[in-house]
Structure formats: structure tokens, C-alpha cells
Design a protein around this nucleic acid. Structure first.
Length: 300
DNA sequence: GCGTCCAGGTCTACC
DNA sequence: GGTAGACCTGGACGC
């Protein structure tokens, strides 16, 4: 079964897929050869379904692992639109970028849509799992969570675990099985708070709080510090934060400072001209070469 | 194979 | 508000 989803003008499937590391973390599965991104999606039915997303001209083609009903199909479309940020209005961002010769490539390339998970909860758990460790360890933790707790779909692949499933496990499980180390109590506590309803992280998506207050709220979650909160802010559509980590600092040093380490203040000054878009401008700047290496520097 | 060092953000205690 | 040290893992390195 297939669904076609209309993408906005200027949307780049490839740029969005590899906009950051999420495509490399399950339940996302990236097929580099055929340029497809698939993942298990919970439609609220007995079994989750696997959706394989690819570009079809300017639109998106979603191939499903089994036949589903109208309601489930509409849920899949909603999730795909959310993950690929198809409803984000990029016009204002592109207009600002077009004023600067070093950044005008962004609109032409259709960059700036950051891939995200179907839920803020999944993005939050993944973000905590990226902090203070190598990417290999992050993958190991997420692999472990999904392999142990993810609901199996019709084709045997697993979805990201629900807060309830994560809350039901012990701290020892996170420490010994997931290898989450000192993050173990944080993951357990987060899952419990979300499962019992005392913390609703999905509301961060439409929050009307100023960014600084929303960031403060995010940092009340154990394991979420400045970097994690700012990374998450970008995923919920706030770009007036930079989310500086070691990779961004070293990349900035290489690209803009002759290889010498830069003070955070200098990085902040460099992107301050982009105002509310500075975080997204920074990220596009840092990742520009991810696709320059290939031939795919066109919008489609 | 073993021990040591280091990188990677966040938390807590302290000033 | 700022800072130091602990937290924990895995990889790199030397022996």
C-alpha cells in the first residue's frame, strides 16, 4: 500500500533526511543506496506499521508494510508531515538567509528542516542519550531500548518504546542492559513522570512560553542541561538558541577560525546577525558540506 | 590482555 | 552566578 504526500515548494527530501544524526538512530533506518528512510510508526492499531519514505518528484511516497484503514493512513500522513517538517513555513528564514552571500545557498538547497521523531518524548530520550558520550554509545543505548521494549510491527521491526514501557523497567535495567550509566535514573524518572501524566513534553511543541522559559522548563528534566535543552528547542521549532557542543565548536573552529578553538562568545557574535534564526543558520552552516560532498545540491 | 588516560555534557556542592 | 569535581562508558594507547 502506498500514500503520496504533497511537499511544499522548495522542500528537499535528501537535505531533510540527513539534516542531523537522527536518520542513523533506530527506529529510523536509512537506505543510502536507494535514498529511502523507513521506520515503524504506531497508528493506534493492534500492530504498528513500517513506513518507507522516499522522494517522488517534489512529493513524498510512503510505502507501507501492510494494508491499513483510512484513519490509520491519516495518522501516518500526520506523522510523516511532522517528522519531515512539511508544514514549517521556511519563507521568513530563507528571506533572511538570502541577504547574506555566505548563507544564500540554504534556500537554494532547501536546507533547514530538521528531521524529528513522531513524539517529543522520543526526541527527548534520544537527546539525553547523545550527551556526554560517543555516537557509538548513543546508538548502543537506543538499540537496546528499542530491542528490549519497542512494540513489534507486522514485519517484525520494532517501534520506539512508550513512556509506560520504559517506566515499567528498573534503574538497574537501564544501567546494566542499556549501558546508560549515570543516565539510568534520569531515563527511569523521565519515563515515570510522562507515563503518570505529571509531565507532558508533547505540549512543548505548541508552547507559547518565551524560549528562555521553555528552556528552563526543559532543564527541569534530569539529564537535560544547556546543550540538550537547546537541541530540543530546535526540534520543537525554536531557533533563537545555538546548542553548542564539542562537535559544533570544533567545526566552527575549522571553518571560521583557522582551526583554532573559539570562545562561545565569539560563536554567538558570529551568528547574532540572524536574530531569531541564528540557531538554524548555525546548524546549516556547520552541516553544509554534508551534501556538498555529493552531487545532490539541488532541490527536489 | 591489562591498566591508564581521555573525551563527552550534566549534576551537585560549594563559594 | 560561577566553578570544581564526580558521574560513566568506550576507544585509544602503551606495556
Amino acid at each position: 500500500m502506498e500514500i503520496t504526500i504533497t511537499a511544499p515548494h522548495g522542500f528537499s527530501f535528501k537535505r531533510t533526511v540527513i539534516s542531523h544524526g537522527w536518520y542513523d538512530l533506530p527506529p529510523f533506518e536509512f537506505d543510502e543506496k536507494n535514498w529511502t528512510l523507513s521506520r515503524v510508526i504506531d497508528t493506534g492499531e493492534a500492530r504498528p506499521v513500517t513506513a518507507k519514505v522516499s522522494a517522488a518528484g517534489r512529493d513524498l511516497k510512503v510505502s507501507l508494510s501492510r494494508k491499513i484503514g483510512k484513519r490509520a493512513a491519516s495518522k501516518i500522513e500526520r506523522h510523516v508531515r511532522h517528522m519531515f517538517r512539511l508544514d514549517d513555513d521556511m519563507a521568513a528564514f530563507y528571506e533572511v538567509m538570502a541577504q547574506d552571500s555566505d548563507f544564500e545557498w540554504i534556500a537554494k538547497a532547501g536546507a533547514g528542516r530538521l528531521l524529528r521523531s513522531p513524539t517529543v518524548f522520543e526526541d527527548l530520550v534520544k537527546t539525553i542519550s547523545t550527551t556526554n558520550c560517543s555516537w557509538a554509545l548513543t546508538k548502543k543505548m537506543i538499540d537496546g531500548l528499542i530491542g528490549s521494549l519497542g512494540r513489534r510491527g507486522s514485519d517484525g521491526r520494532r517501534d520506539f518504546p512508550t513512556p509506560e514501557a520504559m517506566a515499567s523497567m528498573t534503574e538497574r535495567f537501564y544501567r546494566d542492559e542499556i549501558r546508560a550509566g549515570y543516565r539510568a535514573p534520569y531515563l527511569k524518572e523521565l519515563a515515570e513522570r510522562v507515563a503518570e501524566g505529571s509531565l507532558d513534553v508533547e505540549t512543548w511543541l505548541g508552547s507559547e512560553l518565551p524560549t528562555s522559559e521553555l528552556k528552563r522548563e526543559m532543564k527541569r528534566v534530569k539529564g537535560v542541561g544547556d546543550y540538550a535543552a537547546e537541541n530540543l528547542l530546535k526540534l520543537v521549532g525554536r531557533y533563537d538558541v545555538l546548542a553548542l557542543d564539542s562537535w559544533v565548536r570544533s567545526t566552527f573552529a575549522r571553518i571560521h577560525n583557522g582551526g583554532r578553538a573559539s570562545a562561545d562568545k565569539k560563536i554567538e557574535r558570529y551568528y547574532s546577525r540572524f536574530g531569531e534564526w541564528r540557531g538554524l543558520a548555525l546548524w546549516c552552516d556547520m552541516t553544509r558540506e554534508w551534501m556538498d560532498r555529493d552531487e545532490q545540491f539541488t532541490t527536489w
